[in-house]
Design a binder for these strands. Structure first.
Lengths: 342, 342
DNA sequence: CTGAAAGCGCTAACAA
DNA sequence: TTGTTAGCGCTTTCAG
C-alpha cells in the first residue's frame, strides 16, 4: 500500500504548518489568499486526498444522513428518496439508505447500524406493524435528530412530515357521494399504520357529514399489492346490496381492482366508481384513468431533508424542537374512473 | 457534550489493557472466553458505542459501498437497489447512494464524493450521454473495485453485470415477424448508451435473418418517458406504409404509446403489435397487457453486490480481475399486445 | 493469552 | 495571519 499524502506532506512541501494547510483546505477565512493558493496547488500536485475518517473522528460528525424506508422498490418511496438525495447532495451530506422490508426487527437492526455509523441525522418511514419507537432511544439520548415522514409514530415528540390523510380521504369520499354512490367500500392497509388509521377517520367523517351510516362491512384491509384486485373484488361482489363506490389506498391496488372488475364485466365508473391514492404513473395509464389523490412524494423528500439539514446547521438546534408536524398539501384528482355522466 | 465511553474506560473498569478490550470486542480468537465475557458485560454496562471513525482511520476501510444510479425514481433502478441493499446489509456493509440524474457532470461529482468518502467499492450504472470513464481513474489507481451494471461503458476492463440486450431484442423482433408484422418500428433511447446500441444490433440482426431490409426510418430515438407516446405515435403514423409492429425499449413508453394509439383508434394488436421492455408492473396493468422482456432487476442488484463483496472479501482480490462480464438471463414474455389471432 | 507503545490524519485550543 | 501542541479512539506490531 502506497503511503497516503497527508497535510503534513503538503506542509513540508510549502514550508508551512499543518494547521495552516488544514485551514486553507477547509476555506477558513483567516488564511492569506496567496498562502491558500500555494497550498491548494501543492495539494493538487501531490495528489492529496483528504481523509474523512480522521476528520470525522476529530470533528465528531460524519456528514452523512441515514434514511430508513419500508421498501426501496416502491414508486412512492423511490420518489421520496430522489427528493432527499437532491437536497442532501446540495448541502454536502451523504445518504446512507436501508430498507426495513416492513419488518420491525429489520428496522431495529437498521436503526442500530445507523447509530453505529454515527449519522448526523435520521429520516424514517416506519415499518408496518407496531408503534414501538424504543429503538430510536439512543438517538434521542444523544440528541441526534430523528425525523419521520409519511408513516410516523403516534403520540410522539418527534417531528414528522406528512400529508393530511384524513382530509384526503374525506374529500374522496365526499366526491364519490356527490357522484351518486350509495355504498362506498374503503380498502386500506394495516390499521396500525397511522396513514391508514387517519384515512379511515376521513372516510367515517365524510359518511357522517353526508348522512350515511358507517358499516364496518364496507372496510377491507389488504396488502394492496399488485395481486390484490382479485381478492378484493371477490369480497366486494359478495356484498348486498352491491357497492357502487370504491376507495382504495394505493394506485397499484386500485389498478389491480380495476382489472379484476373489468374481467367480471363490472363497468367502471358506471357500475362502480373508483378512486385510488398516490397519483402514481399507473393511475394515468390504465383505462379508464384512475381518479386519485396526488401525493407530493418528491416534495416530501425535499422538505424532510431540508428541515433536517436546517436543524443540523442551526447553532441552537431548536428548529425541530419547535416544530411538531409539517403537513404537505395533497389534492384529489378527478379522472374518468369516478366520473359519472349521471 | 457528554464524554464518550471508550475502550480505555472499559479497560480501566475491568482491569485489563485496551488492547485486550479491542480484541475481545472484535472477536479476536486469542482472548479467553471468561475475559471476553467480562469485557462484553462491562461494555454493555457502560453503554459503550464503538467509534467507527477511529476504527476506519486505523483500518483504512469504511465498510461502505457506493452506488451511483442515473435516477432513483425509476421502477427498474429501485428494484436493483432493493436487491443490492439486501445483500450489502447481510454482509455488514453500508450503502451510500446517489443519483447522476443522467448528467455526466453530476456523475463526476458523485464519483468524487464517493472517492472522498472512501467507499470500499463502487457500483455504477452510467449516466447517458458519454462513454467517458476518466473520472473513475482515482478508483482504478487505488485499486478500489468499480463494478458497472446495466449501463456499462464500452471497451473497458471493468467488470459489468448486464443482460444480453442484443439477444432480447432479437427475440422480440423475431416474435413480431412471426406474428406477421411487415414493418416493425424500433423505439429506443440515446444510442450512446450501450444498452440501446446493443438492442439496435439485435433488431438489425433479426431483420436480416428473416429477409427483411433494415430501414433507418424505422428507428426512433426518444426520452421514453411517460409522455413519449404522443410524440412517437405521431411520427409512426406519418410513415407509409403504416408500420404494424412496435418494439419499444421500456414499458412506460410502451404503455404511453398504447394509449396514444387507442386514442387514435388504432387497434392493438390487430393493427399494431407492441412489445415493451422491463416487465414493469405497468405492463401487466394496461389493456391489452403488454408483451415485454423480463428484466431481472432485483436479481441484478443482488448479483452485482454479491460479486463486489466477494471480491472485497477475497484475500487476493482477483475475482473481478478474472471476470469481465456477467450476463443475466432475460426472457421474452408474450402477452396480448403482440399476439395476433391470424 | 495479555500488554505497551506507537501512530492512523486531522482539527481546535491556545499562543505568538 | 500562522504555529505549537495535544488529542479524537482505535488497531497493530512487537514483546512478554
Amino acid at each position: 500500500m502506497k503511503k497516503e499524502i497527508t497535510i503534513y506532506d503538503i506542509a513540508a512541501n510549502v514550508g508551512l504548518s499543518p494547521t495552516t494547510v488544514s485551514r486553507a483546505l477547509s476555506n477558513h477565512p483567516r488564511v492569506k489568499d496567496v498562502t491558500r493558493n500555494k497550498i491548494l496547488h501543492a495539494a493538487k500536485d501531490l495528489g492529496y486526498q483528504s481523509n474523512i475518517f480522521a476528520s470525522s473522528l476529530r470533528k465528531r460528525r460524519s456528514n452523512s444522513i441515514g434514511v430508513i424506508v419500508p421498501k426501496l422498490n416502491s414508486a412512492f418511496q423511490s420518489s421520496v428518496l430522489a427528493g432527499m438525495e437532491k437536497i442532501a447532495t446540495q448541502a454536502g451530506y451523504n445518504l446512507i439508505i436501508s430498507q426495513s422490508v416492513e419488518s420491525l426487527d429489520k428496522e431495529i437492526s437498521n436503526t442500530n447500524i445507523m447509530f453505529n455509523s454515527r449519522v448526523d441525522g435520521l429520516l424514517v418511514s416506519k415499518a408496518g406493524t407496531t408503534d414501538n419507537i424504543e429503538h430510536f432511544q439512543p438517538f434521542f439520548q444523544k440528541n441526534i435528530p430523528v425525523l419521520f415522514f409519511d408513516r410516523v409514530p403516534e403520540n410522539n415528540h418527534c417531528t414528522g412530515v406528512v400529508i393530511n390523510n384524513t382530509q384526503a380521504i374525506y374529500d374522496a369520499t365526499a366526491h364519490l357521494i356527490k357522484q351518486g354512490c350509495k355504498r362506498i367500500v374503503h380498502v386500506l392497509g394495516n390499521l396500525q399504520i397511522n396513514v391508514y388509521a387517519d384515512r379511515l377517520k376521513g372516510y367515517k367523517y365524510a359518511l357522517m357529514d353526508h348522512g350515511f351510516v358507517f358499516d364496518s362491512a364496507n372496510v377491507i384491509t389488504d396488502e394492496l399489492d399488485e395481486d390484490s384486485g382479485e381478492r378484493i373484488v371477490e369480497k366486494i361482489l359478495k356484498l348486498h346490496p352491491r357497492p357502487d363506490g370504491l376507495l382504495i389506498s394505493n394506485d397499484t391496488s386500485a389498478a389491480s381492482c380495476l382489472m379484476a372488475l373489468k374481467k367480471r364485466g363490472v363497468k367502471v365508473p358506471e357500475d362502480m366508481a373508483i378512486v385510488g391514492f398516490n397519483n402514481d404513473l399507473i393511475s394515468r395509464m390504465v383505462e379508464p384513468n384512475l381518479s386519485t389523490i396526488n401525493y407530493p412524494s418528491y416534495h416530501m423528500g425535499e422538505v424532510a431533508m431540508k428541515n433536517l439539514i436546517n436543524h443540523l446547521d442551526d447553532e441552537n438546534q431548536e428548529i425541530l424542537q419547535k416544530t411538531n408536524t409539517i403537513t404537505l398539501r395533497s389534492a384529489l384528482i378527478i379522472r374518468e374512473s369516478s366520473q359519472r355522466t349521471t
